[in-house]
Computed example of a mutant assay.
Amino acid sequence: MPRSGAEARRRLQQAALELYQERGFDQTTAAEIAARAGVNERTFFRHFPDKREVLFDGEADLRAALMRAVAEAPEGLEPFEILLYAFRKSARNLENNRPFSEPRWKIIAVTPALRERELAKHAWLTDAVAKALRLRGAGDGLASLAARTGWATYQHAVQAWIDDPTQSLDAHLLRAFDDLRALSTTILSGQTQAES
């Protein structure tokens, strides 16, 4: 029996991850997760409102960390550089939790209900990043565009890291943002030529 709330929460998360991999999300119940973790079902529901949320724990912490990192980014950076700074800081936690992060992403990828929940999480986090950029003085339109594009680039980097763990998440982030800059430059260059 876990001795602390944090230990029970961690065991519930691990049990859920194992069961979702073995049986699939839809075939696993909260009671089965609780039993695997060595706690009762009431304990499960004290920690998580439903079996989806086991995989989405820490959202509020991530949101706060991203907003703080955007606020703390050095002065004089453009919005994309601010976002790269913030994502690199927050990615450390994801990288440190790879044994949980990687299977979590794979389970979400094959489960429609979880993909829907993941999209809602992404929208909430994107809004937070846009708000943080606005607090730094970016206009509404620019903050929204930068947050959406930056978040998509971050997600692209995380997927690349899951697919290719031989390089760090930081290396994948740097490459993804470099690719985005190159793409933007190509578009602007092509537009300038077309106007000539």
Rank of each mutant, 00 (worst) to 15 (best):
R3F: 08
S4R: 09
G5A: 08
G5H: 10
A6C: 00
A8D: 06
R9S: 11
R9V: 03
R11Q: 08
L12Q: 01
Q13Y: 01
Q14A: 14
A15I: 04
A16P: 01
L17C: 07
R23P: 01
Q27L: 02
T28F: 00
T29L: 00
T29A: 00
E32S: 03
A34W: 01
A35N: 06
A37D: 02
A37I: 04
G38D: 04
N40P: 02
E41F: 04
F45L: 06
R46L: 15
F48T: 05
F48P: 03
P49R: 10
D50T: 08
D50I: 08
D50P: 07
R52Q: 13
E53F: 04
E53D: 15
V54A: 13
V54S: 08
V54T: 10
D61S: 12
L62C: 04
M67V: 10
A69P: 05
A69M: 02
A73I: 03
E75V: 10
G76N: 09
P79M: 05
F80K: 10
E81F: 05
I82P: 01
L84T: 02
A86T: 01
A86P: 03
R88I: 09
K89I: 12
K89R: 13
K89A: 12
S90L: 11
R92S: 09
R92K: 14
N97A: 13
N97K: 14
R98N: 07
F100L: 14
S101K: 14
S101E: 15
K106L: 13
I107N: 05
I107M: 04
V110F: 02
T111H: 02
T111R: 00
P112A: 00
P112T: 00
A113E: 08
R117G: 06
L119W: 11
L119Y: 13
L119V: 13
K121M: 15
A123I: 12
W124G: 08
W124L: 14
T126G: 06
D127R: 12
A128N: 07
V129Y: 04
L133C: 03
R136D: 08
A138C: 14
A138G: 07
A138Y: 07
A138N: 14
G139F: 07
G139N: 05
L145N: 06
A147P: 05
A147Y: 03
G150I: 01
A152T: 10
Y154D: 03
Y154G: 02
Q155L: 15
Q159V: 15
I162W: 02
S168G: 06
A171E: 07
A171H: 07
R175D: 09
A176H: 05
A176C: 09
A176E: 02
F177K: 01
R181V: 15
L183K: 13
S184E: 14
T185F: 09
L188T: 15
Q191V: 13
Q193G: 06
